[in-house]
């Protein structure tokens, strides 16, 4: 198994060694993962729907136990998890402030500088003016900022974002990506961003984890932007074109066997 909580011995915050993980007793969703996350790094995780991206980050954060291999996480590491916003609770009228405040709840004790952290997180994410509004009344982009602010309150060593720009228009997407870049520059936290949008991932990260049919491959950013590599990883022929916000987008070649 093993999710270790220990010193990793190097500057690594987390080290995965031959990790396999999945749900129940079925075939593992990801297997044989070797990977290390170091302080301040920015990684993108891409792959087709259902390829195992979310399984990988859940294993890293200790939400899933590896069925094989070892996941060693530095003892004092703090994860700031930004889940997919469509899973956000909207029956009860939680305000922005109440939702963000949940981020300061820790296992052992509450941070003493609560108000500072809250104020900084709201300020960084541009939520000060709407801090007393119910979250359920906000736009998709504002809800995403709330989740990011909640993660920031804990002053995370690693910011983990699961599809943060899904279903956003170009302006909203660029605002969120700009915010993530700014947070990383200001706080020095490592960033791990899961997305099926190549251009979004490339804008944030220097290195990529490409998840394909349960296997995980690491690539430097520039190395990954190659249509043959991406075609093999997505399992269909793709091409790379200039995309929104000056980035790149990966598109299926018409008649090539599917869409991305």
């Amino acid at each position: 198994m093993n999710v270790g909580s220990t010193s990793t011995g190097t500057d690594a915050l987390a080290v995965l060694t031959r990790v396999s993980a999945g749900y129940g007793r079925n075939v593992p969703v990801v297997s044989g993962v070797d990977w290390a996350l170091r302080r301040g790094e920015a990684w993108g995780v891409i792959g087709a729907n259902g390829s195992g991206k979310t399984t990988l980050i859940r294993t890293l954060m200790g939400l899933l136990k590896p069925s094989e291999g070892e996941c060693r996480v530095h003892r004092n590491i703090r994860f700031g998890y930004v889940k997919q916003r469509d899973g956000l609770h909207d029956l009860f009228p939680f305000t922005v402030r109440e939702m963000v405040d949940m981020g300061r709840m820790r296992g052992r004790r509450l941070p003493s500088d609560r108000d500072d952290r809250m104020g900084q997180a709201l300020e960084t994410t541009g939520l000060v003016g709407i801090a007393d509004m119910p979250v359920r009344e906000l736009s998709g982009g504002q809800k995403q900022r709330v989740l990011i602010a909640r993660a920031l309150v804990s002053r995370p060593d690693v910011l983990v974002l699961d599809e943060p720009t899904n279903d956003m228009d170009v302006a909203g997407e660029q605002a969120i990506l700009g915010l993530i870049t700014r947070i990383r520059a200001e706080t020095g936290c490592a960033v791990l961003m899961v997305s099926h949008l190549l251009h979004a991932v490339l804008q944030i990260s220097e290195q990529l984890l490409i998840v394909h049919e349960g296997t995980v491959h690491t690539h430097a950013r520039d190395e990954a932007v190659h249509k043959d590599l991406l075609s093999s990883r997505y399992g269909i022929p793709v091409t790379i074109r200039p995309g929104s916000g000056g980035g790149l987008s990966v598109e299926a070649i018409p008649g090539g066997g599917g869409g991305v």
Binding site: L63, G87, M102, S154
Partner: peptide, 20 residues
């Protein structure tokens, strides 16, 4: 109530923050 609220609406995030 606060711990119950957090774990009721978002148990995964609560766990990543070290809450039991």
């Amino acid at each position: 109530r606060k711990a119950f609220l957090f774990t009721a609406i978002d148990p995964d995030t609560a766990r990543t923050q070290g809450l039991p």
